[in-house]
């Protein structure tokens, strides 16, 4: 028994050493980012810990980079995109899970096929397509361009959520005189809230963090969303690490808040993406 104890203690110690080392390796870049963002410009390369907390960097990059504009642009694009994706996918997901119609399975697979298509495949034709519609350099255009595959994936998630709800509820509703829309609107939709939350968070993060479409379809510097705006600004601030760090940090904050508030759904949404089918 004591030998068992000893191995247990050794095992635990080794485990903790491993976990703590890993925490330092993974956490260090972020700690460094925070520390750099509050340093004085002159002490960036001389000390690891800042001698005093200097918030001026945030004010400087906030104004010079025009951060409020870019954060606002991102918020608009993300808001519109998430709304479209969630509304369309909730309706369609419900239809596949709770309604009965001919060729249901084949139609489902056609809808689901879109989520396997990588952005690169449609990047170039979409550029021309948006140009023809007059939607280049437009937030609406960018929000629309990012709807395809996400709707498909959200339908997959939503149909799974609706399938998990008991069918008897709908039958009871019909006996009480609800029509199909009423059953959806008053019975299933309120129950699907956790599922909808998961889709919202998942999609919010995807759109907020998107880079390739955003950098391609919007070239007007004022209209850029936050990710390309940060990329663009690097050249100007390549040596000014304090301002750059402050800027990166402020771009992380919105997504961090969402994550802290809704951690559970957040992780659920991300890991749900792993198992399709």
């Amino acid at each position: 028994m004591s030998l068992y104890r000893v191995t247990k203690v050794i095992q635990n110690t080794l485990s903790y050493m491993f976990l703590i080392t890993l925490s330092i390796l993974l956490g260090f870049p972020l700690v460094w980012l925070v520390l750099t963002s509050v340093k004085d410009r002159r002490e960036v390369f001389t000390t690891f810990l800042p001698t005093q907390v200097n918030i001026a960097n945030f004010a400087r990059i906030w104004d010079e980079m025009n951060l409020p504009t870019h954060l606002g642009n991102s918020l608009f694009v993300t808001g519109l995109n998430v709304t479209i994706v969630v509304v369309t996918a909730t309706l369609a997901g419900y239809a596949f899970a709770r309604l009965v119609f001919p060729r249901q399975n084949s139609i489902f697979y056609v809808f689901i096929l879109a989520m396997m298509i990588p952005g690169q495949a449609i990047l170039i034709p979409m550029f021309q397509y948006l140009k023809n519609l007059g939607l280049l350099n437009s937030h609406v255009g960018l929000a629309l361009a990012m709807t395809g595959a996400p709707i498909s994936f959200a339908i997959f998630l939503m149909s799974a959520f609706f399938r998990a709800l008991p069918a008897e509820l709908g039958d009871a509703g019909k006996i009480d005189g609800c029509n199909e829309w009423g059953v959806f609107r008053h019975i299933y939709l309120p129950l699907a809230r956790p599922g909808i939350a998961t889709v919202v968070i998942f999609q919010f993060m995807g759109t907020w963090n998107e880079f390739m479409f955003s950098v391609t379809y919007i070239s007007n510097p004022v209209l850029k969303t936050i990710q390309p705006a940060l990329y663009q600004v690097v050249g100007r601030y390549s040596i000014d690490y304090t301002a750059l760090s402050a800027g990166l940090l402020m771009a992380i904050v919105p997504i961090l808040i969402v994550f802290l508030l809704l951690q559970k759904q957040f992780v659920k949404g991300l890991t749900a993406g792993a198992f399709k089918g």
Partner: peptide
């Protein structure tokens, strides 16, 4: 009719922003 109404919005977006660009690609 009912399933069509539920599927139509998603179908339109998938058609316009995935199927057509993909075919063009």
């Amino acid at each position: 009719l009912v399933p069509t109404m539920f599927l139509l919005p998603a179908a339109l977006f998938l058609l316009a922003f995935t199927a057509i660009p993909l075919a063009q690609a």
